[in-house]
């Protein structure tokens, strides 16, 4: 059975159908991709999967348990973590503090003063482990505001990993990144695959075809195609497109 599953999800906003009968399954240890043109319903789908929106019909299952309808914090505590399209980091602090604030051990301490936090070596060590997973351990004590755009994206991923998830959802991870930063992000995602189950929404089709084990194509609020990159690439019109190079890479 798949680690994460959506079954027959339906969502309307007013009289408009945004998601129509969407079913998806993400296997443990794989990178699953979701792609689609603008306005196809990708973001709404993501919000429903991670609990920000409640579906009108259908259900979402994580590890066999129904999670649709539960509050997002509860879903997060069960091991479902997500990054956001908008940068939400604390810029007036150091890099490591962003991660420490997201550690479950910190949240259990609640409102204790930050000075006490910085003297807690166990917390610092744990944050360093997480930063190391995204290649930012050496920048731990630098100002967060000093990071490049690509490093900020890596830090956002570290913040999502701090919650110790079993499955990590990435929302348009390449958005705003240049070619070099995108290439580095691809290396990072490939490395994280060894440790986490990953689901990404991405409109950069080449990035997705290069990294994902399986891809679901969403359009008109529905899954219009799915398969491995090789299966999706085996199509006359895809072969004629600019994507052809990526699928044969």
């Amino acid at each position: 059975m798949a680690l994460f599953e959506a079954r027959n999800i339906h969502k309307r906003f007013g009289s408009r159908v945004v998601l129509e009968n969407i079913s998806l399954a993400f296997e443990e240890g794989q990178i699953s991709g979701i792609m689609g043109p603008n306005g196809a319903g990708k973001s709404t789908c993501f919000h429903v999967l991670t609990g920000q929106h409640k579906p009108d019909r259908g259900e979402v299952l994580f590890d066999g348990q129904r999670i649709s309808g539960l509050p997002p914090q509860r879903i997060a505590r069960m091991g479902v973590s997500r990054s956001f399209q908008l940068m939400n980091l604390f810029d007036d602090t150091v890099v490591i503090e962003n991660v420490m604030l997201a550690l479950p051990a910190f949240r259990e301490r609640r409102l204790k003063a930050m000075s006490a936090v910085f003297s807690d070596t166990a917390l610092i060590d744990r944050a360093l482990v997480v930063l190391d997973q995204v290649g930012l351990a050496v920048r731990a004590w630098d100002a967060a505001a000093s990071l490049s755009y690509g490093d900020r994206r890596a830090l956002e991923i570290a913040v999502a990993l701090a919650a110790e998830p079993r499955i990590l959802f990435l929302d348009e991870p390449t958005s705003g990144l240049g070619a070099e930063a995108t290439r580095r992000l691809a290396l990072l995602v490939r490395r994280l695959r060894e440790r986490y189950t990953i689901v990404m929404i991405e409109h950069d089709m080449r990035f997705l075809f290069e990294l994902a084990d399986r891809i679901s194509v969403i359009h008109w609020g529905q899954v219009i195609a799915e398969g491995t990159p090789a299966q999706l690439g085996d199509n006359k019109w895809v072969r004629r497109s600019a994507l052809a190079e990526a699928t044969h890479a």
């Binding site: 043109p37 219009i224 195609a225 199509n235 019109w237 004629r240 497109s241 600019a242």
Partner: peptide
């Protein structure tokens, strides 16, 4: 529907 030969979506749409 927007048909664009560059992105390959045509193939997915026709299959749908």
């Amino acid at each position: 529907p927007q048909f664009n030969t560059q992105d390959g979506y045509i193939g997915f749409m026709l299959d749908f």
